Simulated assay, not measured.
Amino acid sequence: MPTYVIEREISGASKLSPQQLKDISAKSNEVVAGLGVPYRWITSYVAGDKIYCVHEAPSADVVLQHAREGGFPANRVTEVAAFIDPSTADGIGE
Results as ranks from 00 to 15, higher is better:
Met1Leu: 15
Met1Lys: 12
Pro2Asn: 05
Thr3Leu: 05
Tyr4Gly: 00
Ile6Tyr: 00
Ile6Asn: 04
Ile6Phe: 02
Arg8Met: 00
Glu9Met: 01
Ile10Met: 03
Gly12Arg: 05
Ala13Pro: 08
Ser14Gly: 08
Lys15Ala: 15
Ser17His: 02
Pro18Ile: 15
Leu21Trp: 03
Lys22His: 06
Lys22Leu: 13
Ser25Thr: 15
Ala26Gln: 13
Lys27Glu: 06
Lys27Cys: 03
Ser28Val: 14
Asn29Met: 12
Glu30Leu: 07
Val31Trp: 09
Val31Met: 08
Ala33Asn: 12
Gly36Ala: 05
Gly36Thr: 02
Val37His: 09
Val37Trp: 06
Pro38Lys: 09
Pro38Met: 10
Tyr39Glu: 11
Trp41Glu: 08
Trp41Pro: 09
Ser44Arg: 07
Ser44Asn: 13
Ser44Gly: 14
Tyr45Leu: 13
Gly48Phe: 10
Gly48Trp: 08
Ile51Gln: 10
Ile51Pro: 03
Val54Pro: 03
His55Leu: 07
Ala57Tyr: 10
Ser59Asp: 06
Asp61Leu: 06
Asp61Ile: 07
Val62Ser: 09
Val63Lys: 09
Leu64His: 09
Gln65Asp: 15
His66Trp: 12
Ala67Asp: 10
Glu69Lys: 15
Gly70Cys: 14
Gly71Phe: 11
Pro73Lys: 07
Arg76Asp: 13
Ala82Tyr: 01
Ile84His: 02
Asp85Pro: 00
Pro86Asn: 09
Pro86Tyr: 00
Gly91Phe: 03
Ile92His: 10
Ile92Asp: 01
Ile92Leu: 15
Ile92Gly: 02
Gly93Cys: 03
Gly93Tyr: 09
Glu94Phe: 11
